[in-house]
C-alpha cells in the first residue's frame, strides 16, 4: 500500500463525495423546505446527462452540452414541480414515494423512447484532459480534480446563497413556517418551483460530471439516488451542512472500503476468501454506517428542528 495509492483513493473518495453532495443538496432542500421526499431526483440527474451527451455529440462542444443539460434538468424540475409535486406537499410520505416512483418509470421509459436503448458516450473536454503528477509517484486525471473543484465551488455558493441572500432568507423562512411567509406576501408557489428547479439543476450537473467519466444510460440515476438518500439520512434530512459532511463521509468510506477492504482482510484470511468477503463487506459498508448512525442518532448527525 503505497502513499500514492492512498492519496489517489482519498481523492477518489472526495470526488464521489462532492458528486453525492450535488445530488443530496436538492433532495435535502426539497425535504427541508417543502416536506417532499422525491425519488425522481435520479431521473433529473439522468436528464442532465442525456441532454448534455446528445447535444455534445451533435455539436461537438462539451460546453454547449453542459449549458443545455443544466437548462434541461432545471426545466424538467420546474415542469414536474408544477404538474405533480405541488399536489403532493400536503400529502403523507407514502403518496409522495408512490407518485415519484411512477415518475421514475415515466422518465426511464421516456428516455428509452427519445434516446434509444444504447448507452451514449460523452467525452471529457480537451481542456480537462490529461493528468498531473501526485507526490509519491503516479498521475491523477485533471478531470477528476476539476470535479472536486466544481463540487466545492457549488457547496460554497449554496452556503452563501442560503445564508447571505434574500432568496436564501426566504428559503430558510419557508423551512420554519410556510404559512407565515405566505402571509407576509412572499409568493410561496414561485419560491417552491425555484427551489425545486435549483435542486434539479444541481442533480443535472452531477449527471453531466459523472456521465463524462462513465457512460450515459437509462437507470444510471437510481444507484446514485439511493446513495444520496443514505447521505441525507446520515446527515439529518433537511440539513445542508449535514448533507455536505455526510456526503464526504460516505464517499470516503465507500471508496476506501472498496479499495482496501480485500487487502486488509487478507491479513486474517486466505487471499481468495479475502477477495470475495472483502468485496461484499465493501459494498455494504455505507449501509452499515447508516444503520450505526441511526441506531445512536435516529435523526441523523445534524438534526433539523422539524
Amino acid at each position: 500500500m503505497s502513499a500514492a495509492l492512498i492519496i489517489e483513493q482519498v481523492l477518489n473518495g472526495f470526488q464521489l463525495g462532492v458528486m453525492l453532495f450535488l445530488m443530496a443538496a436538492g433532495l435535502t432542500l426539497a425535504f427541508g423546505v417543502m416536506g417532499l421526499i422525491n425519488l425522481a431526483h435520479g431521473s433529473l440527474y439522468m436528464t442532465g446527462a442525456f441532454v448534455c451527451a446528445w447535444v455534445a455529440n451533435a455539436t461537438g462542444s462539451f460546453w454547449t452540452g453542459l449549458a443545455l443539460g443544466l437548462l434541461a434538468s432545471a426545466a424538467a424540475g420546474a415542469i414536474i414541480e408544477i404538474l405533480v409535486m405541488r399536489r403532493l406537499y400536503d400529502r403523507d410520505h407514502l403518496d409522495q414515494v408512490l407518485a415519484t416512483f411512477s415518475l421514475i418509470l415515466i422518465f426511464a421509459e421516456g428516455a428509452h423512447w427519445l434516446f434509444g436503448s444504447r448507452p451514449l458516450y460523452l467525452n471529457i473536454p480537451d481542456l480537462l484532459d490529461g493528468a498531473i503528477a501526485l507526490p509519491g509517484g503516479g498521475g491523477y486525471p485533471v478531470y477528476r480534480l476539476a470535479v472536486i473543484g466544481v463540487g466545492l465551488v457549488v457547496a460554497i455558493g449554496l452556503f452563501l446563497l442560503i445564508t447571505r441572500t434574500r432568496l436564501g432568507m426566504r428559503i430558510r423562512a419557508g423551512e420554519s413556517d410556510r404559512e407565515m411567509i405566505g402571509a407576509l406576501g412572499v409568493n410561496i408557489r414561485t419560491l417552491y418551483t425555484l427551489v425545486f428547479a435549483l435542486g434539479a439543476m444541481l442533480a443535472g450537473l452531477a449527471g453531466v460530471l459523472v456521465g463524462a467519466s462513465q457512460s450515459v444510460q437509462v437507470g444510471m440515476g437510481e444507484p446514485v439516488l439511493i446513495l444520496a438518500f443514505v447521505v441525507i439520512v446520515i446527515g439529518g434530512i433537511g440539513s445542508i451542512k449535514g448533507a455536505l459532511v455526510a456526503s464526504v463521509l460516505v464517499g470516503l468510506v465507500d471508496t476506501l472500503g472498496r479499495a482496501f477492504a480485500p487487502s486488509l482482510l487478507a491479513l486474517a484470511l486466505p487471499v481468495q476468501a479475502a477477495a470475495s468477503v472483502g468485496a461484499s463487506v465493501a459494498s455494504i459498508l455505507i449501509y452499515l454506517l447508516m444503520a450505526v448512525v441511526l441506531a445512536f442518532r435516529p435523526q441523523g448527525l445534524f438534526p433539523t428542528h422539524g
Binding site: 410520505h93 439511493i226 439520512v233 434530512i237 447508516m290 444503520a291 441511526l294 441506531a295 435516529p298
Partner: peptide, 16 residues
C-alpha cells in the same frame, strides 16, 4: 433498528 426511527427515516432505512 429501523423502528427506532420514524417517518422518512424509516422509509429510507428499510430501503438501505
Amino acid at each position: 433498528i429501523s423502528l427506532r426511527t420514524s417517518g422518512v427515516y424509516f422509509i429510507m432505512i428499510t430501503l438501505a
